[in-house]
Nucleic acid binder design. Structure first.
Length: 487
RNA sequence: GGCUCCAUCGUCUAACGGUUAGGACAGGGGCUUCUCAAGCCUCUAAUCGGAGUUCGAUUCUCCGUGGAGUCACCA
């Protein structure tokens, strides 16, 4: 098989879209699996829509999800950008002369023609076509111009565009995901390939670059299938080999329509802000429309690279199941080491990161779904929240018993050494041995102990809480609870 | 509306033409248990409809139906 070269060709019009991430992932899977290259190319041919900082944001997101490209723009440590790769430049606005040359070539060959129609005329024309239920497409008014006439008007400085002259016939192609697709050219518009401002449109720029950059597989969203004939026609006009097309199923909102800002979060950045881990997001998005099969749900990125198969990609759109993302995020959270939890949670936490906070984060990581929940989860550890002393009493006991148990615990815990306080399981066995030795019931002891330590009816185990708080704070809280029960 | 694509539990999905149609999320019940979380067990829940091919269709073909995408000097 020839060298696999995939490319992601985003337009810098805002934050990175979650669908863009999925396409990027599949590009990456396919390239890595075949020892190929993954290229990023910036499609900024619409000057009006380009947003400053969008490329930087895109590259930052790539860094965040830990997938790297082989060619294209890269972010330097100082925030400036540089390019890597032998097929640059990788930003289309730096390639204008290339497109101009190619457009001229098509005009010279009679495959394309200048058009002087105004936006107003075009609109009128479309209205008329819609009125008689015709396909809306350019009526080829300017095709009848002679070369001399056109030359004269261009030289006179008249604004014009270049349109491709779609030949008669039909375009057939084998989509790697969808199979055989046929389009009759009667449905294909003489679309514009060069705009008045001298910039190319997507069709021309993408075809030229995909060829020049030796792209073997074009992965893109399903919204592009209907424009595929235009791309293929261009490849053929230039006499180039046509790459393999694969149209990915759309990512849908809860309304089953193409995911938009109205119906859910579309920006990858938003998912990070909401406290999702990059690994979870990659796992989730990377298995949407593609499943390695088997009864597993959690996959590392390398496992996805290994098992990826373009031909096993679904063709139906996928609604984002946010509950499942939460569940998946939790799976990753629970697997984090103490060091990693601290690292990930720190940006979401408003209190100072102390040893106590680190321990609390480690314990709470299996009790939250998203990083944003840590801040609240931390509060009872950092500072005892006021509570009704009545909650100290276990449902099967009374206040007097609870108070007595707390006093015994106070005495017991005073005897614990540093080594015991250094490990949750040591604390647990020490307390439980005492309970057994004294012939007590777990509930009578553990419930008041835990509530006194956490100040909460629902919380982590008393042993975990002891470990987080340390001896001194633990005893303080027990003393407080005992006093509260006595008054 | 034209064109194109798509169709398995509510959602994400699995199933060489032969399975009691499997798994996961969510939901219900239970176990465990000092509470919550986790874990384990369990229940509810799907092949859009109709023809055809076949000994046998979730799977192949056709026709419906439904949904989506697209019809810009945006990508």
């Amino acid at each position: 098989m020839a060298v696999v070269r995939t490319r992601l060709a985003p337009s810098p019009t805002g934050k990175m879209h979650i669908g863009t991430l999925r396409t990027a992932l599949f590009d990456y899977f396919l390239a890595k699996q075949n020892g190929g290259k993954f290229i990023i190319r910036i499609e900024d041919t619409d000057q009006g829509r380009s947003v400053p900082g969008a490329v930087e944001n895109l590259l930052e997101m790539f860094e965040a999800v830990n997938i790297s490209h082989d060619e294209g723009p890269f972010l330097n440590d100082d925030g400036t950008m540089a390019e890597k790769g032998d097929f640059g430049p990788y930003v289309q606005s730096d390639r204008l002369d290339i497109y101009k040359t190619h457009a001229d070539e098509l005009v010279a060959k009679g495959f394309a023609y200048p058009c002087f129609c105004s936006a107003d005329r075009l609109e009128e024309m479309r209205k008329a076509q819609v009125a008689v239920k015709q396909t809306t497409k350019y009526d080829r008014k300017c095709l009848s111009l002679t070369a001399a006439e056109a030359r004269e008007r261009i030289d006179a400085g008249e604004p014009h565009v270049i349109r491709i002259k779609i030949p008669e016939g039909k375009t057939e192609f084998d989509d790697a995901i969808r199979g055989h697709v046929v389009f009759d050219h009667r449905e294909v518009d003489d679309c514009i390939i060069m705009k008045t401002d001298g910039f190319p449109t997507y069709y021309l720029a993408a075809a030229v670059d995909d060829h020049l950059m030796q792209i073997s597989h074009i992965l893109r969203g399903e919204e592009w299938v209907s424009s595929t004939p235009k791309s293929i026609i261009l490849f053929k006009m230039f006499g180039w080999d046509v790459p393999i097309f694969a149209h990915l199923p759309l990512l849908l909102g809860p309304d089953k329509k193409k995911l938009s800002k109205r119906t859910g979060d579309t920006a990858v950045e938003e998912y990070f802000k909401h406290g999702y881990l990059a690994e979870a997001l990659v796992n989730f998005v990377g298995t949407l429309g593609f499943n390695p099969s088997g009864d597993r749900e959690i996959f590392t990125i390398d496992e996805l690279v290994e098992s990826f198969d373009l031909h096993k990609v679904n063709s139906g759109g996928a609604i984002l199941n946010m509950e499942k993302l939460d569940w998946m995020n939790k799976q990753y959270l629970m697997a984090l080491s103490m060091e990693d939890v601290t690292l990930r949670a720190t940006p979401f936490v408003s209190v100072e990161i102390t040893d106590l906070v680190e321990r609390a984060l480690f314990i709470e990581r299996s009790r939250v779904s998203r990083l944003t929940e840590f801040n609240d989860a931390l509060k009872p550890y950092v500072e005892l929240q006021t509570y009704d002393p009545a909650i100290l009493v276990w449902k099967k006991a009374d206040a007097a018993d609870s108070c007595a148990q707390l006093e015994r615990m106070f005495a017991l815990i005073q005897t614990f050494d540093d080594a015991t306080f250094n490990a949750v399981d040591l604390l647990e066995s020490a307390v439980k041995e005492y309970i057994t030795r004294e012939g007590l019931q777990n509930g009578n002891v553990l419930w008041p102990l835990r509530v006194a330590l956490s100040g909460q009816e629902k919380s982590a185990t008393p042993f975990e809480t002891l470990w987080v708080l340390g001896k001194e704070t633990s005893l303080d809280r027990l003393r407080y609870a005992i006093t509260a029960l006595k008054t």
